[in-house]
Every structure is written in structure tokens, then in C-alpha cells.
Design a protein around this nucleic acid. Structure first.
Lengths: 219, 219
DNA sequence: GTCTATACATGGATAGAC
DNA sequence: GTCTATCCATGTATAGAC
């Protein structure tokens, strides 16, 4: 009914094709959202029945849009990874004083990762890394590696951060943040070994800036 | 035959019971080793058939020793976690100069983690953290938390490492090492974004020691 | 106590009506 | 294109012979 209102009059072949295409996109989207929730909740072992139920379509419909479970999964992961590729360092961020920049960057990084979808994605990527090594590779090359590279470049170009091995320092910073999320959010450390984000960030910045000062001094 | 040689003469009830108990222990051990390999390779989704085959026993035998799959899994994980509880800081280690101590500690930590069983365990713990939160909790409380606590204590008691928040600094150090293993060994970063352990360790020690000097100076 | 054979449920994937 | 009903393999768990 509402459909007739949106698209009245002409019923030529082209319009029909277009309408079908629109519908197909909607259904496809509907499936992907349901499948995403199901996979992120239950891992790759989520059943196609469960996905169909969560998506609100029949199981056969899944197979008409995606040939097999693995294809659906891959398509989803591709899209999800793409979604989390962040804007990176905006010019305004880079123009901040060093300390403010590092704090802001750490906060942004933690905020992005402290999210149900992101945390579930990490669990899935790590948990299925034996079965889907390509997924791990994609995760590293799309999300981890660029983040480290940008941070390393920032360190390299910043005179206040005169480290001998910017790449390694970037890994240390990034790694301590990622592991904080893994421990606190994925493994439940927020309950069994709680620590506020700010405490971690403060110490991380202290350590990096102090080290940078000393490093500059000792040259 | 050899059994008769080891345990000759008397065949009273007690001896028989003992012999049975010995055998049972052996079978149990045999099952656990096969199950361990299978679970670590294939995750919790490993089938009982596969475990029976790998263990070299019939499926029913699994069920006579462990009531159900989940019990077998739990028993295994308990034992494996216990196995990896390391000696910790030996007195001779603590007597080293600060820099040598930190380097040695980092090397030991990475060496312990860079091991097929340990890596597989981490993947399993993280991957199944939604299904088995108790396993995550056990992992944190037995392996992670004590390691961080000991390192924090060392920092606190060492005059050369005058940090304001030893606990947070310990997390940063520990976290960057753990995440290095996750990225390089679990996610395949050793191929796609290679970096030697020594580079990471060197930079980590540089950063910590430089920061400590500066921190002491600025008091 | 251990094996073979089997029961029962669930998984992925497909056939056929509409 | 979408649904219902079904196929077939595999999974956990158990029964019964030895």
C-alpha cells in the first residue's frame, strides 16, 4: 500500500526492475543486520536457523541471497571491518599540543573499542583465527596496522617525541590500550580486576612523555 | 607382563584395587592428552568423536571418565591453567640490576607465551569467553592478575622506578607484551606486520627506564 | 571397563508450492 | 522471491555385547 503511494503511475519494465532491486537491497540489509547480531552473539557456530529467526526471514531466503553460511559470514565481516576503519587523525587533532593529542587519541581509541560490536568482533576474530586466518589478516591490515603506522608517523614527525624506534613505541602504546580492552571488556576484568580507563591513560601518557624528555636530554 | 613384574606375589583386594586405580589414572591421562590437543586445535566445537579418535579410546570411554563434554573441557582447562602458573620471580632474578631484571622478565614472559599450547589456550579463552565466562575469570585470576601484581610490587619496592601508579605501569608493560603475542602469533602478524621480539623489548625497557629517571628527577 | 551399534537432536543445505 | 517441508550428515549421549 504505502509502496503504491511511493511509486505510482508508470509500471514499465525499468521501474519494476528498479523496485525489485530496491526490495532486494532492503532484504539483503535486513538479513545482514540479523546475521550480524547473531554471529556477534554466538560466534561462527551460530546456526542458520537462528540467523533466519533473528533476521525475520525464512532460512531459504538466506541461501538465495548468500550461497552458503561462509559467504554470508565473510560478507558481514568485510563490511563490519570497513565500518570500523576510523577517520584517523584529523588535522585539528594533530594540531593539539603533544600531551593533549596523546590523551585525546587514547580516549578516542578506547571509546571506539569499548563498544559491544567492536568487542564482539575482536572476540570473533581471535576465536576464529585458526578457522579463518584471512579474517585475522584483514583485521590486522585494515584496523591495527594503519593505526600503528599513523601513530608511528606522528611520533617520528614530532620533535618532542625523539624515540629511537617510533614503530616499536607505537606498538607499545597501541598494544597496552588494546589489551586493556581485551582484559577488561572481553575477559570480564572490569569486575575481577577493575581499573579506570583514566588511570591507564594517565600512566601511559606520563611514561611516554617522561621517556621522551629523558630521551631528548640524553642525546 | 611387565605389570606382573612390577607388582608380583600378593593378589589381595587392596592390591587389585590399586592396580585398577593405576590403570584408570593412565586412561584418564591418555584421554586428557588427546582431548587437550583436539580442543586446542579445533576449539570447544571439537567433536567427541574427534577426541575419542585422537585419544585412541572409544567414545563411550570418554563418558565413563567424564560425564559430559563440558566436564571434560572444564577439567582440562583447570589443569592447563594450573600448568602455566609460573614460578614467578625467583630471588636470583630479583637480585639483578633493574635493567637486566626488566629485560629478563620480558624475555621470560614472551618465551612462555610464545608456545603452541599457550597461544591456543589464549585463543580458546578469548574465543569462548561469552560461552564460558568462568574460564575467562580463572584465566585472569590465575595467570594475568598475579603477574601484574608481582610486577607492580617490584616497581613499588624499587627506588629506581618511582612511578606514581605502579599498578597501571605494570599493566602497560604486561599488556604490551601480551598484545604482541596476540598480534604476532595468534593473528598472524608475524607474517603481515613482522617485528622482532627484541625490538619491542628494547623499546619497552627504554621507555620505562627513561620515564623512571625523569619521574625521579621531577620530584 | 571397554568396545560396537544406535537413539535422538540439530546442523547446513535443498525441493517444491505459491 | 519467499515460504514450508524435507534431506542428509554430524553431534551428543546412551544401550547392550563382551
Amino acid at each position: 500500500m504505502t509502496k503504491a503511494l511511493r511509486k505510482p503511475a508508470t509500471n514499465n519494465a525499468l521501474n519494476v526492475a528498479h523496485e525489485i532491486s530496491d526490495r532486494a537491497r532492503d532484504k539483503r540489509e535486513q538479513i545482514m543486520q540479523g546475521a550480524l547480531r547473531t554471529f556477534l552473539s554466538n560466534g561462527y557456530s551460530a546456526s542458520m536457523d537462528a540467523i533466519a529467526a533473528e533476521s525475520g526471514v525464512a532460512k531459504q531466503t538466506l541461501y538465495s541471497y548468500f550461497g552458503a553460511k561462509e559467504e554470508l559470514f565473510s560478507a558481514l565481516m568485510d563490511r563490519l571491518l570497513e565500518h570500523f576503519v576510523h577517520a584517523g587523525m584529523t588535522p585539528e587533532l594533530r594540531s593539539l599540543p603533544t600531551q593533549a593529542f596523546l590523551r585525546k587519541l587514547a580516549q578516542i581509541t578506547l571509546s571506539q573499542m569499548d563498544d559491544w560490536e567492536y568487542v564482539s568482533l575482536m572476540r570473533l576474530v581471535i576465536g576464529e583465527s585458526a578457522r579463518f586466518p584471512e579474517l585475522s589478516e584483514l583485521y590486522l591490515s585494515r584496523l591495527v596496522s594503519p593505526g600503528i603506522a599513523k601513530l608511528a608517523q606522528y611520533i617520528r614527525e614530532n620533535d618532542e617525541l625523539a624515540f629511537g624506534d617510533p614503530e616499536a613505541v607505537a606498538r607499545i602504546m597501541h598494544g597496552s590500550l588494546i589489551n586493556f580492552i581485551i582484559a577488561q571488556e572481553i575477559l570480564g576484568g572490569k569486575h575481577t580486576m577493575p581499573m579506570s580507563r583514566d588511570r591507564l591513560i594517565n600512566s601511559l601518557i606520563d611514561v611516554i612523555l617522561f621517556a621522551a624528555q629523558q630521551s631528548a636530554q640524553s642525546r
